[in-house]
Simulated scan of single mutants.
Amino acid sequence: MNFALGDWQLAGNDKASAACAPEQGRLAIEARGLVKRFDGVTAVDGVDLSVPEGAVYGILGPNGAGKTTTLRMLLGIIDPDTGYRRILGAERPQDVAHAVGYLPEERGLYPAMKATEAIAFLGALRGLPLHEGRRRARELLEQHGLGYAADRQIRQLSKGMAQQVQILGTLVHKPRLVIFDEPFSGLDALNQGKLERMMRALAAEGTTVIFSTHVIAHAERLCDEVAIIAGGRVPFAGPVDVARDRIPAQVRLETRAAEGPWRAALPADARREGNIWLFPLPDTGIEPLLRALIEGEAGILSLSIERAGLHDAFVAIAGEAAARALAEETPEEIR
């Protein structure tokens, strides 16, 4: 069979793919009360996570919030001081390491290694035989327009190309769970789009995708669920829609009339900008308000209901300081 990954197609082959199909309602990762301290400083403070199989799950927060430390605990690279974690049904992450792909934030390819060998080597670390890894590596590089670089050393590749090679090395052994730590760093806009499409396609085939990011736009476009992390804590973890619903939808109303009996129907906290009124959607919904506006001859020129975005939800949940830190780290062109 083939894992259809759009511009990032990964050839699959075997029964293992069918065996890895997610069961409805199962969790790929479950963590409770994870705590990690370094030299007396608490980096992660009681993190709880539940990641459904087959989801695209984002861990969203500014640098220093505890994202990387949390991922490393889940992977078994470091152990929590206290807390519980289960990954793909195993309490020891090392027992399922062959079924996990991991792209660390610090890229770690050997500069003298050729692209094909680098991908095969990363697969071998997860139990894939080297000869099979080399075959798959050449196939993957061809599929993604990098066939010409198969025998080039990593030091001869651009930063973005080396990043793509490492991403392919993360996937070459066909993992059930893929964990990316800040995967979009170092990629131009074109390759960021390719990576987004690859993540969606992986999830559509049943692979669980977890990625950390400080860019809200990526999380909002990609994620079924997010964990918002700030100061080592997770004040929210769950569906993106639930996070956005923390803030009432906003009504934007433009009227022809500036005054009239209809004004009494507007909420007390309505903000006026000329003949435009801005206010949260009333609990009673829009219909009673519409009726009052029409009967009061407000002369409705336009009326729209705008749902809160993930950025607004992040501010409400994590606070202004965390939101400012996030904004400072996000390139202006993708905010």
Results as ranks from 00 to 15, higher is better:
Arg37Tyr: 02
Leu190Gln: 14
Gly66Phe: 00
Leu88Asn: 11
Ala230Trp: 12
Gln153Asp: 08
Ala325Ile: 01
Arg37Gln: 12
Gly40Val: 03
Leu222Phe: 13
Met199Gly: 00
Gly238Trp: 10
Glu117Gln: 07
Ile77Asp: 12
Ala308Cys: 04
Glu328Thr: 10
Tyr148Ile: 09
Ala18Gln: 11
Lys15Pro: 11
Glu329Thr: 07
Leu74Ala: 06
Gln153Glu: 13
Val315Ile: 10
Thr208Cys: 06
Phe314Arg: 00
Pro261Arg: 11
Gln156Ser: 14
Arg197Asp: 06
Ile78Thr: 10
Ala120Tyr: 01
Arg272Lys: 13
Gly285Lys: 00
Leu303Cys: 09
Leu74Arg: 03
Gly232Thr: 10
Asp48Cys: 11
Arg72Tyr: 11
Gly319Gln: 02
Lys114Glu: 11
Ala322Pro: 02
Ala28Cys: 11
Glu328Ile: 08
Gly274Asp: 12
Met199Thr: 04
Leu293Gln: 09
Leu103His: 10
Leu202Thr: 01
Leu195Trp: 04
Asp188Cys: 06
His214Thr: 06
Ser158Asp: 14
Val226Cys: 10
Phe38Asn: 04
Leu177Val: 08
Ile29Thr: 06
Val56Gly: 02
Arg221Met: 13
Leu293Asp: 10
Val56Trp: 00
Arg256Ile: 12
Asp81Leu: 15
Gly46Leu: 07
Gln192Arg: 15
Asp241Arg: 14
Ser212Ile: 03
Thr330Ile: 04
Arg134Glu: 04
Ile78Pro: 02
Gly76Thr: 02
Gly319Met: 06
Ala18Phe: 11
Pro261Asn: 12
Thr255Tyr: 05
Asp45Cys: 09
Ile305Phe: 08
Ile29Cys: 07
Gly25Ile: 09
Asp79Glu: 15
Lys174Ile: 13
Gly232Asp: 08
Met113Phe: 06
Gly193Ile: 08
Ile286Phe: 03
Pro175Asn: 06
Glu332Met: 10
His218Val: 05
Phe314Glu: 09
Gln250Lys: 14
Pro52Val: 09
Glu91Gly: 15
Thr69Ile: 07
Ala257Phe: 03
Asp151Met: 07
Arg134Thr: 01
Leu130Gly: 08
Gly232Phe: 10
Ala124Ser: 09
Leu310Asn: 05
Ala150Leu: 05
Ile216Cys: 06
Arg86Phe: 12
Arg26Val: 08
Phe121Ser: 08
Val240Cys: 10
Gly108Trp: 12
Val234Ser: 15
Arg107Pro: 01
Tyr57Cys: 00
Ala265Cys: 02
Gly296Gln: 08
